[in-house]
Computed example of a mutant assay.
Amino acid sequence: MDLLQLRYFQVVARYEHISRAAEELRVAQPSLSRSLARLEADLGSPLFDRQGRRIRLNQYGEMFLRHVDRALAELDDGRRAVREARDTGLGRVRVASETLLTVTPLLGSFRAAHPRADVRLFQSDAEDMDRRLRAGEVDFCVASQPLTGAGFASVELAREEVLLAVPYGHRLDGRESVTVRELADEPFVTTRPGHWQRALLDRLFAAEGLTPRLSCEGNEPAASQDMISAGLGIGLIPAVSRRAGTETRVPVAWVRVDAPGCHRVLTLVWNRDAYLSEAARKFREFTTSRPFMTHRLPDARRDRAPGSVLARGHLL
């Protein structure tokens, strides 16, 4: 049994698919299969149930994977600790977020306060963030959806209202608020399943026994406001976009949604069993020791005036 075999087993166990694991590991499938066979022979027990091309972890594989994950995580943490002790900087902090607009000012402020920290940012949906935390690929996630993996710790950073954005001249332009039922026949611009905007939209409509009509679904949340402004539909947009003054660039009208739970909860999530560099520990302290964003929402009609300057909500 060697370290390479254990890493191969870990990746295959994650995918339960030889070809996908071989692609990630950049090894030939026959070589990967032989490595697994030698590992199973060394252990004296099969780790997977094989049904044709499909494989599934069996009870022995699940048991062994828990120990392999802990052992490899300890080795990775040891390498990081030695590297950071050798270097003169604070080390690296790796952060994943669903939307970059949310964390850009945060990371900029942190870099200004700790210029020796090496900051890496990844854009991920909830499923990918969960995977990255489990695999030790990131230190923290700024999540807009619950991440409930075993061993995860979290702290709430902020709650903000989510508003309905509509094109100027739309029938709802000028309304103070609207119910979900009034939106039943409206086409929505939204994200694909897995992103928080889509999860919120589906949840609000499901509460009324409805299914939203979709005119566009994509992987780029930042493009939603542009498409709404162009008249392709309406959509749910976080209040931070409005406070940041984005309608000076992409003009839309804002309407409040009269429905419980039409808000976004931002949480900082980390794996409590994972090693954190000095930079990561300082990032957690920096992020949780002060208000993450302001919550005051400007008056809708006042902010509709051409050329008006929105009250900006800074993330730090």
Score class of each variant (00 low, 15 high):
R53Q: 02
W196I: 00
T294C: 13
L133Y: 03
T287C: 10
R264E: 09
E176Y: 12
A223G: 11
L214S: 08
A126I: 13
R14F: 06
Q145V: 07
R301C: 10
W270R: 02
N219P: 12
V257T: 03
G245F: 02
D77N: 13
R79K: 14
Q225G: 11
L147S: 00
A41W: 08
R134V: 09
H67N: 13
L200A: 02
V265R: 06
L183Q: 01
L214M: 10
V142Q: 04
A165Q: 03
V82K: 09
W254Q: 01
S289K: 04
L214I: 11
V142R: 06
S277R: 06
V11F: 03
P30R: 03
S124N: 14
L72H: 01
M63I: 12
H17G: 02
D202V: 04
D42E: 15
F48E: 04
P105L: 02
H17I: 00
A239C: 12
A305I: 13
A28C: 12
T211E: 13
D49T: 14
N271K: 00
N271Y: 07
E62Y: 09
I55D: 03
V178L: 01
T191I: 05
D139A: 09
R213M: 04
H114N: 11
Q59S: 14
L266F: 09
R281D: 03
A259F: 01
R175V: 08
D226Q: 10
F283L: 01
A184I: 11
D2A: 01
E278Y: 04
S124F: 15
A239G: 02
L90A: 01
G209P: 00
V240A: 12
R50S: 13
L107I: 11
Y168R: 14
A239M: 09
H263K: 13
V155R: 08
R203F: 10
G61P: 03
E220V: 14
Q5C: 06
V138P: 00
E127N: 14
L107S: 03
T211Y: 10
L201Y: 00
I55G: 05
Q10E: 07
M63S: 15
V269D: 02
E84N: 15
T148P: 09
R175D: 08
L106M: 11
L36M: 05
L75N: 02
F64K: 01
Q29P: 15
L268V: 08
L75V: 07
R53L: 11
D49P: 07
N219E: 14
L121E: 05
G174T: 04
V189Y: 03
P291V: 01
H67T: 09
R249Y: 12
R256H: 14
G313S: 15
A206G: 08
L183K: 01
D87R: 14
T288A: 06
F122N: 11
V240I: 15
R312T: 14
N219Q: 15
R272K: 02
L121C: 12
T211G: 06
R171L: 09
L297D: 10
A184F: 09
R34Q: 12
G261M: 00
D258A: 09
E127A: 15
L297I: 15
F286D: 04
D173K: 02
E186M: 05
L75H: 08
D258K: 08
V269A: 07
S45V: 13
I228N: 00
C216A: 15
L100P: 08
L297T: 13
L3M: 11
V257Q: 02
V68L: 05
R243E: 04
S144I: 07
